[in-house]
């Protein structure tokens, strides 16, 4: 994979995420973690090779088909990407609204999810008024609200306190138990080790084979 006409940032990637699996992705800064995640959540495309997502050849997909694939992926962005002109509720409901789902169908779920991430009172707040940790929780709630088949998170616990980090990891594990495939990029080696999930390591754009899990994913 390369950005525009620049050099390749990922080389010889051979990765298969089995449905329902839980993986961590680690590596030093600039190793290509975010680039690999962008490739998987279809923000970038392969410059060579083939990528299959949910059994479909991505390169053969039309633009609308790719949009439908994206709806099956929940993404927690490192920089949150919350829309500051929308309320917390509207930010979380954004993937559902963009998919054309009526508000009556999702309102209850969004309110419940907000309570679960501890932001029940901030439902009509503007994201600008939230702390970094609260923004991160909103970003996570938005990523999981549509019960995605694949959840990708880029440093999802980077801005929250240890208690909230454990709470959020429990949410990811719960989603994984419900069938979602989870891939989390993290620098937090303590968290990675504590989870016992297989770890993918990337260095200079090259991915090492996953290390065997030491114990079952649990947070």
């Amino acid at each position: 994979m390369r950005y525009s006409h620049g050099p390749d940032v990922l080389h010889d990637i051979n990765l298969n995420l089995a449905p329902g699996s839980f993986h961590f992705l680690t590596g030093p800064s600039g190793a290509g973690k975010s680039s690999l995640l962008k490739l998987i959540y279809l923000a970038q495309h392969c410059s060579a090779g083939q990528m299959r997502l949910f059994g479909q050849d991505v390169d053969a997909c039309t633009r609308n088909q790719k949009s439908l694939l994206r709806r099956r992926i929940g993404v927690v962005f490192q920089e949150f990407r919350l829309l500051e002109h929308l309320s917390v509720f509207e930010n979380i409901a954004l993937p559902l609204r963009a998919a054309g789902i009526k508000r009556e169908s999702y309102e209850e779920d969004v309110v419940e999810l907000l309570s679960w991430v501890g932001l029940g009172d901030a439902i009509n707040e503007n994201p600008r008024t939230l702390s970094g940790g609260e923004k991160q929780r909103v970003a996570i709630a938005r990523a999981v609200v549509a019960k995605p088949e694949l959840l990708i998170a880029d440093e999802p616990t980077g801005n929250v306190d240890p208690d909230m980090a454990i709470r959020l990891m429990r949410l990811f594990v719960e989603l994984n138990r419900l069938g979602s495939t989870v891939l989390i990029a993290s620098h937090d080696l303590q968290l990675v080790r504590a989870s016992g999930a297989p770890v993918l390591t990337i260095n200079e754009g090259r991915l090492s084979p996953p290390k065997a899990p030491r114990k079952r994913a649990r947070a």
């Binding site: 959540y41 923000a43 949009s67 694939l69 994206r70 992926i73 954004l94 993937p95 998919a99």
Partner: peptide, 8 residues
Amino acid sequence: TLHLAGAF
């Protein structure tokens, strides 16, 4: 954001 959320 809309694009990555799967909006057409």
